[in-house]
């Protein structure tokens, strides 16, 4: 498989401040890769390094076999880019802006027009008069309109309403089916789950893990709370497979579960269960799963 994005020790400092540290990535052609992390983790830095808007302190990035520094113009010719907050010339109408960028890229307006129609975007209005969501749609259209081989999208749906998010997800899946490569940053696990094949987790500038979506979901901690008819003993739930942080207070049990909840359910079924609540694993829970692992490793290393 050809690798469309390769980074080696990619590092960026803004003066004293950390951007990203020592990022090693390999993303294959046709892959939909999600970069998952909280705000300020370095997702945008990573993407801006790809496009040569900022320059690495050390290390390198190769996109489509071209060096991000030396061949940035040729890279950008083949890359569609959408930032989290699409800001552009407010006085231009949507159509004028798309026409301008189409001219800079040297292709026709046909695909831009059909994308605008698909996202129900009024191209006759000035960008400065559009709502944030509609402005973001203009951004979406300009990112996809050149039919690029690689799409780099930075929190693309943060400004879109749920319906448009779904339409966007459909578009991403279509592009993926057509063999396009997509690099998408997000802080929502639920989003990368839907559209990505693989996910990199970034925290405080470092890539802490790269996982298949399925693996990630398995390792994610699910918080479970069970209410019983009678008081239960904590001992009944100790040492269960994948169950940790067990806490019992009279008739109420809370714990975290990784992977399946099977063993917990079986243990619970020996009592009369009144209510079960389980929270979808959020980003924090995913991180927690990884950090807990790290600290366990450290513990065992010390012992």
């Amino acid at each position: 498989m050809t690798e469309l994005i390769i980074t080696t020790g990619l590092t960026k400092f803004y003066g004293e401040h950390r951007g990203v540290i020592d990022i090693d990535l390999g993303i294959g052609e046709g892959e939909v890769f999600g970069l998952l992390g909280p705000n300020g983790a370095g997702k945008t830095t990573c993407i801006r390094l790809f496009l040569d808007l900022i320059h690495p302190t050390s290390g390198s990035a190769t996109l489509l076999g071209l060096d991000s520094r030396a061949d940035s113009v040729r890279i950008r010719q083949a890359v569609g880019y959408l930032p989290g907050d699409f800001i552009t010339y407010e006085k231009l109408t949507g159509r004028d802006l798309l026409e301008y960028f189409v001219n800079l890229r040297g292709h026709g307006m046909a695909r831009a027009e059909s994308l605008a129609e698909r996202f129900d975007l009024d191209l006759t209005r000035k960008i400065g008069e559009l709502s944030r969501g509609n402005r973001q749609k203009v951004g979406l259209v300009q990112a996809f309109m050149s039919d690029p081989r690689l799409l780099v999208l930075d929190e693309p749906t943060s400004a879109l309403d749920p319906l448009l998010q779904q339409e966007f997800h459909r578009l991403v899946l279509e592009e993926a089916a057509a063999g396009k490569t997509l690099f998408i940053s997000s802080h929502m696990l639920s989003e990368v789950e839907i559209i990505c094949d693989r996910v990199g987790i970034i925290r405080e500038g470092s890539l802490v893990a790269i996982e298949e979506i399925a693996t990630l979901r398995e390792r994610a901690l699910t918080r479970v709370e069970i209410e019983f008819a009678d008081s239960v003993s904590v001992d009944d739930f100790r040492g269960l497979d994948g169950v940790r942080d067990v806490f019992v207070s009279d008739r109420r049990l809370t714990c975290s579960v990784t992977g399946t909840v099977d063993s917990l359910i079986k243990a619970a079924s020996r009592h009369t269960v009144v209510k079960i609540e389980s929270a979808q694993p959020g980003l924090e829970e995913v991180f927690l799963a990884y950090y807990n692992d790290d600290s366990e490793k450290e513990d065992s290393g010390a012992a």
Binding site: L53, V73, R76, F86, I87, L104, R105
Partner: peptide, 14 residues
């Protein structure tokens, strides 16, 4: 300063 340069430079132009 009006934040439009970023998007302009994301086009294939040096």
């Amino acid at each position: 300063e009006s934040h439009t340069l970023d998007q302009l430079l994301a086009n294939p132009i040096s």
